[in-house]
Design a protein around this nucleic acid. Structure first.
Lengths: 339, 339
DNA sequence: GACGTTGACTGAACCGGATAAGCTGAGCCA
DNA sequence: TGGCTCAGCTTATCCGGTTCAGTCAACGTC
């Protein structure tokens, strides 16, 4: 089966290639009658313009890049990325953009990918995930002048466009809720400590605990895996003054923490309250279902994609705020048992 | 920052564009000295050939397509796809191929995507997931003559290349193991019934149960979500002659099933043994950790990608068998309690 | 009726590579 | 010394679109 080209359409319509191009792209320069005739013929023979040819002459790739910089191990378990990707993709394909995905191992590799994509003109822009403090990718992208939207912040995104959510507010809400229930010893199992949003959450946690007069508000660092989450929980629950509530920086660690608590003979929520970040189906899978700080991650991805397309379209690189994660109370939180 | 082109390299090296092209692609026609000089200059100015120009003249896109046809809801939770993608991607990027991803809602949309990709010459081949019985995508791809590897089977893949694993053997191993432990009433919570691999597993389950003389070997259909998995479990465990062991077609449903069992006051594994399909970190997250039928999914993806690149390279469209999933016994299986 | 003006279209250049075909000079042999 | 071969290049063409500079007929206008 031969792929039809613009020349095939032109021949059948009895016009030049140029006329077909004008007609298909809604440009002036062809009569309405001719445009309709050309459109009909194009549909008839199933013509779709070669992305390569178009990219070459129009200097636009029609694609957006996403490099994921996490070990394959963590990538799989967290529902976050898949949800984000499906949201991004939905928005892109609605505007006939393709999504090009690459998994990398570290930031150097990621920067090399950006540089290659830029040189190959393979993408018109990129989405940047997992912002770190002092992130080397930011100046690299600025130098390349490759349109980009950083998913993260606020702050640390240089001159690049960004999409952020108010994690500090969300975390504060969760702590205030636990305190309202009567908790005084609240711990937190945080994500990778050099991620910008971990930093922000940790600062917010410290601040709200000080404000509410909670003495030993401890944050344990982790790496988002269930193993680490479980280990951290075991350590916290083995301490002399064990916390009555724990906030986890993702759903996977929260589920692991729940298992550890139950394994240690504690009843959730009476002995221990648990709050998860990222409200995925995972949180509703376990018993009791987990109270979670959630938001529509697919919508977040779609929002990021929309913002990136705007930046690619030449709009200024703004810092856009997305919905603040909100608390969904479920069975894993309750007033602490009197001791 | 201007992107260097082949002409820039040629100018600096004092040779023609053609010579540069020969040098960079390892073709004969340039002396070794000149080749080295050109390579050095290319590296120096950070030249990478425009993918569009290369695609246009070489009639190859340098990209592979993957269309995921599942509701965003299920996509996120199952670690399977993310693991598969990261495996595929690792293999592709090692051979400098890009991965283009699209999420679709049904097979008609998916076929339309294939047709568009084909017309736009956007991909050199595609990976097809979630094979169904009487899958309309197969004849569509055959007609387009778009290189493809179907991840699934055996059988039902037409003339297309495929990569399959012996799910029947794996399921048989799991049932035999449970019977060896002393179980006589084994149920199964299957995946979407029109998926080919569900069909294969169901047939294998029925066959091995008949062979071993297990009377009421029931399979309940489901949709891979935790909700459905939990509901199915509740139904099974409420029946008069409730099973002493349940095999789930994925990890998410197994975890949900475990929660339901515990919620109903049953102890796993003494009251109920649980076997999960897809051994992801999820299975080790819960308590007790789940006995699972697992395999290296990333390697599966890498294998599929390798096979696809071979088919794109002109090799015959073979049906390749991947590793058979194997049973990893953990805490969720034990001899049934005497009653 | 000569002179713009406009709409509808054509022809050709161009994007940046790959590649077939042509050219050139060195080396070799008769 | 002329002819031949062949490595090592150059030149030109092509891929399939977009786009700009023309062309040309129809129309209005004074």
């Amino acid at each position: 089966m031969k792929r039809p080209t613009i020349a095939d359409v032109a021949r059948r319509a009895g016009v030049s290639k140029g006329a077909v191009s004008y007609a298909l792209n809604g440009q002036p320069g062809v009569s309405e009658a001719t445009r309709q005739r050309i459109l009909t013929i194009a549909t008839e023979i199933g013509f779709s313009p070669s992305s390569a040819a178009r990219a070459l002459s129009a200097a636009t790739a029609g694609a957006v890049g996403l490099a994921l910089c996490r070990p394959a191990r963590t990538l799989g378990v967290e529902p976050f990325f898949m949800a984000l990707i499906s949201g991004v993709e939905a928005e892109l394909s609605a505007r006939s953009y393709a999504l090009t995905l690459q998994v990398v191992t570290d930031h150097d590799a990621e920067i090399a990918v950006y540089r290659r994509w830029w040189g190959e003109r393979r993408v018109d822009g990129v989405l940047v995930c997992d912002l770190r403090s002092q992130d080397r990718r930011i100046p690299a992208l600025e130098q390349l002048q490759l349109p980009a939207v950083v998913i993260g912040g606020p702050g640390g995104t240089g001159a690049l466009a960004s999409l952020w959510s108010d994690d500090a507010a969300a975390l504060t809400e969760a702590v205030e809720y636990l305190v309202a229930l009567g908790h005084r010893r609240i711990a937190r199992v945080g994500g990778l400590p050099d991620l910008r949003h971990t930093e922000i959450r940790t600062e917010a946690f410290t601040a709200v605990c000080r404000r509410l007069g909670l003495a030993d508000a401890v944050t344990v660092s982790s790496d988002y895996t269930g193993e680490e989450g479980g280990r951290a929980t075991r350590r916290l629950l083995s301490s002399a003054q064990r916390p009555t509530a724990v906030i986890y920086d993702n759903d996977v660690m929260a589920v692991a923490g729940l298992s550890v608590a139950q394994e240690m003979g504690l009843t959730v929520p009476t002995d221990l309250s648990i709050v998860a970040w990222d409200d995925s189906p995972l949180c509703r899978l376990v018993h009791p279902p987990l109270t979670a700080l959630g938001r529509d991650i697919a919508a977040y991805g779609a929002h990021a994609a929309r913002h990136l397309l705007a930046v690619i379209g030449g709009e200024p690189a703004g810092r856009v705020e997305d919905e603040t994660p909100h608390l969904t109370p479920r069975g894993s939180t309750a007033p602490p048992r009197e001791r």
